[in-house]
């Protein structure tokens, strides 16, 4: 057995936590996708060298405390209003990089107007959209993206489309708007998908550097607590049920 200290040397480092991620312990549940997406955004910010220029807009929901984890300046918005904040921040400081980070209830229910109009104006921002089909923080209520038949605490018998309408494919709607330049749907449940999501996030930030308009990266995610499944089961359930309704891949890339 060799001493660990003989291995920990600069020349042996093949992977290192980016300094853009803080040392704070994540408050997210086991299996949650937020931590992975936070890490990917932090890595993109580090690789692009824009830590001192990036302003994040945090939502209301589980990621309300996202500002604890990325070492950048943050503003925490009222529920659904992140795109309005991001609009003003970017317009008043066009040299800075601005991204909003929102869940499905935030982006596709209470904040639908702010989302659509920020995209329609082609605000030169990145919108990161975590879609796990449920309200996590408030305890598993039905989201605008909850699948048909999927149970939630406010539809315990499962979403009844005749009563609640069908889950909204907000990314497809936003892709219709001339203001969006890039709309993509990704996931982070496998190593391959993590790499693809990182590439998507990087492209979104590069679009902002190129002044191309609004880039939206949807990440279809799990919520093992809200779905009442083990993390492993949640990943399987997501592949079997979420992906057919929310297929992965680029929806728009201009």
């Amino acid at each position: 057995m060799s001493d660990i200290n003989t291995i920990i040397k600069p020349e042996n480092i093949i992977y290192k936590k980016t300094d853009v991620l803080s040392e704070n312990e994540l408050h997210y549940c086991p299996g949650c996708s937020h931590g992975t997406v936070h890490k990917l955004i932090a890595e993109v910010i580090e690789e692009m060298g824009i830590q001192d220029k990036t302003i994040g807009i945090a939502p209301v929901g589980c990621s309300v405390l996202a500002y604890n984890y990325l070492e950048i300046d943050w503003q925490e918005a009222a529920h659904g209003r992140a795109p309005a904040l991001a609009t003003a921040v970017k317009r008043l400081m066009p040299e800075n990089y601005v991204f909003s980070y929102q869940g499905d209830g935030d982006l596709a229910a209470i904040g639908t107007a702010e989302t659509i109009h920020a995209c329609n104006r082609g605000e030169n921002i990145v919108m990161v959209f975590i879609n796990n089909g449920i309200y996590g923080m408030t305890g598993g209520q039905m989201a605008p993206t909850t699948l048909p038949g999927m149970p939630a605490s406010t539809c315990p018998a499962g979403r009844d489309v005749s009563h609640d309408g069908a889950p909204i494919k907000i990314s497809e709607i936003l892709a219709q708007l001339p203001g969006t330049c890039y709309v993509t749907r990704q996931a982070v449940h496998t190593a391959a998908n993590v790499r693809k999501t990182k590439k998507a996030l990087k492209k979104a930030f590069e679009n902002q550097a190129a002044n191309k308009g609004t880039s939206l990266v949807e990440v279809v995610s799990t919520c093992s607590s809200g779905w009442k499944m083990t993390p492993t089961k949640a990943n399987e359930w997501m592949e079997e049920n979420m992906f057919p309704y929310y297929p992965l891949g680029d929806i728009k890339d201009e």
């Binding site: 503003q75 209003r81 309005a84 904040l85 991001a86 609009t87 003003a88 921040v89 008043l92 107007a113």
Partner: peptide, 20 residues
């Protein structure tokens, strides 16, 4: 100077700008 989509959006744009 920007015309927002609602007063909800305009006051939240004010929040974003004030935060800067």
């Amino acid at each position: 100077v920007l015309q927002a989509e609602s007063e909800i959006a305009s006051i939240n744009m004010v929040y974003g700008g004030a935060g800067c």
